[in-house]
Write a protein that binds this DNA or RNA. Structure first.
Lengths: 108, 108
DNA sequence: CGGCATCCTACGCGATACTG
DNA sequence: CAGTATCGCGTAGGATGCCG
């Protein structure tokens, strides 16, 4: 929404909500996080869950979330495949997601 | 994010979080709501608070939020000027915003 | 399966100017 | 002050194809 990085920074510097909005301010990040909060997921599982998402978008979002340290890649056991797992910081979102679920059920 | 309305509907139908994400899935709606949660605000006050937003974007977002019945226009007292006030449905967001503020302070 | 690279379009949004 | 109207650009993101 905001044109320059500076303007965005002004908002974020003073307001924790702006920082969160910056992080989660697109609909699909929330959905990815919702899934991962349940359990680690593979790329294809996320793809299937987020109906209509393109691989391009999914990889991009995952990269951002990884860069922000909300999740990281893991390889369970000695298997070759990759999974996406929430970090502690990622699990911290549980409260927000929980409130959203409650709100959605009640009002939407 | 999702191409067709149908695909979006598929997600929303089954998941309350998807519905919320759909509603709040852009950074500036959250900021507007954050302000209004505190008290009713005038157009210019919002404009000033959301550094860098254009009148066009602000009016558009307000229209959407009004259409979704999260807020409505009011005219306090017998004054001429308009204010934006949260509805009950809008106030219901308090829990989510509260969690976001807590998360932002702790992790971001 | 789990991506990455390219191409291309829709549209979100800022800038600007005008109205009541 | 509280918007509406028009224009024009940047970019998010879909489609497609290729690779290890």
């Amino acid at each position: 929404m905001l044109r320059t990085k500076e303007q965005r920074d002004i908002l974020c510097r003073s307001c924790p909500i702006a920082r969160v909005a910056n992080l989660l301010g697109d609909s699909c990040s929330l959905l990815i996080l919702r899934d991962l909060l349940e359990s680690p997921r593979r790329f294809s599982e996320l793809e299937e869950s987020l109906v209509g998402i393109s691989t391009r978008t999914l990889t991009n979002k995952l990269k951002v979330l990884e860069r922000e340290h909300l999740l990281h890649k893991t390889t369970p056991g000695k298997s070759a495949h990759v999974e996406y797992t929430l970090t502690t910081k990622g699990h911290g979102l549980r409260g927000i997601i929980k409130e959203m679920r409650a709100y959605g059920k009640k009002y939407l």
